[in-house]
Design a protein around this nucleic acid. Sequence first.
DNA 1: TGTATCGTTTCATAAAATGGAATTTCAGTG
DNA 2: CACTGAAATTCCATTTTATGAAACGATACA
Lengths: 251, 251
Amino acid sequence: MKPLVLLERLAEAQHPMGLAELATALEVPKPTVHRWLGVLEEAGLVQRTLDGRRYEVATRASRLAFSILSNKPSGAIRHEILRQVVRDVGETCNLTILDGAEVRYLDRVESQWPLRITFQPGSRVPAYCSASGKLFLALMQPAKRDLALCGIKVEKKTDSTIVGKSALMNELADIRSNGYALDREEYLPGLVCLAVPVFRTNGRSRACVAALAIQAPVARLSLEDMLTKLPILKEAADSMSETIRHDSEAN
Amino acid sequence: MKPLVLLERLAEAQHPMGLAELATALEVPKPTVHRWLGVLEEAGLVQRTLDGRRYEVATRASRLAFSILSNKPSGAIRHEILRQVVRDVGETCNLTILDGAEVRYLDRVESQWPLRITFQPGSRVPAYCSASGKLFLALMQPAKRDLALCGIKVEKKTDSTIVGKSALMNELADIRSNGYALDREEYLPGLVCLAVPVFRTNGRSRACVAALAIQAPVARLSLEDMLTKLPILKEAADSMSETIRHDSEAN
DNA sequence: TGTATCGTTTCATAAAATGGAATTTCAGTG
DNA sequence: CACTGAAATTCCATTTTATGAAACGATACA
């Protein structure tokens, strides 16, 4: 199991790492790192980059990661937080993560209103036209953002969808300064959303790993009304952060 | 790393599992499962339920899962670019690299047509009779090219296969001036391909490290029709370059 | 109290991890 | 084009850990 620290280091890093880099970062002899990487590669958890000299997380690891996060025992607490939010604001609440250039619903609790939008956990939506998607794009490293956005096709889903590159960049800058993101009917006509970040703090670095978002028909909840729910959402997002906090592990 | 199958099984299950349950599910002897669970528990990936008789995914695993998902490997992004191309041109698309005097398929996405050529990623084809292979030969340093070509056996795969040394050199010169390469049924009768280079820019130097190629039965797509897809391919190749640039960035 | 199942320990054997040293590879440089 | 240094890889004697059949202990239920 010791090779796992390599996987963790690679998953934390926002770029592929070389052998020597890993060896010094983890203070492990080079031949050992070499073997560990071999083990991880064999196991399908890690793969070499195109140049064959660096390593990155591979598909089996992603599959495992998704299983873990949608797993009930550890997800039960998060689900409970979602239910609490729905009770407090009366609208559907989603927990989402970024998957490439798309947003994925990890979990959701729906409001009890007869008029509501029904998604399934696991379904996906383009990042550029959703509140949580734009939030992720706004808060991620610029280099990573370029990577995620390269080669995607922007579709004008509604009249309000942001299609221009510079318009999107302005929007992202606004989101960064506000600390929240809105979807102003940019994906579905009549549907508005408000998303706040869920952070994972690791020592001095802080990364937005998930988002908490409420969605509602604009007929029931205007954008201004929605913003009054911001404190509730932020508090719930803090609780979410707690569930994924790095507690001091001794071993 | 073998204990990982336990973690995967536990993550998939939507409820905590006992030892015997896991042992029969995975067809592994009980003492082994017992030890594996001990290893995973020690590692903080798994924890016992309150009654101490079942196991569930623990916090370190969730933390790792978030890290993994917040960081999509560039290989997956490349795969998405391939998918995009297949959507746009309707034909199978390959990402290839040069491996000695052979072309190796790094990744591929197949068209949905019933009539299609089925290769596996990882399979190899001689460079001199494939579009991407000739592209590599055309764009590489002459010295390296001679090295790659010396001592290989040129086989006349079809009537159109280029077997003469000077004919090949002329072809390579054409490819250099065009910026793309064609396979005119030179490897398989009835199969035509179009390949464009994927560059890695390193300071002022620019090297062709991979190729993007579409392939189709000539009965469905003539060479002229295929050339109309050139702009789409070139754009996708630029996106590919982006992903490679990120692979090469260390810090 | 019987008994059936699950969980745990034991142990001789087989397999693998370890890391210092040596070797190879490769990109950058004179 | 040889040189150079850092990075990657291989080697290998030694230490450490994994393996699973069998035996044992714990627990639940009748």
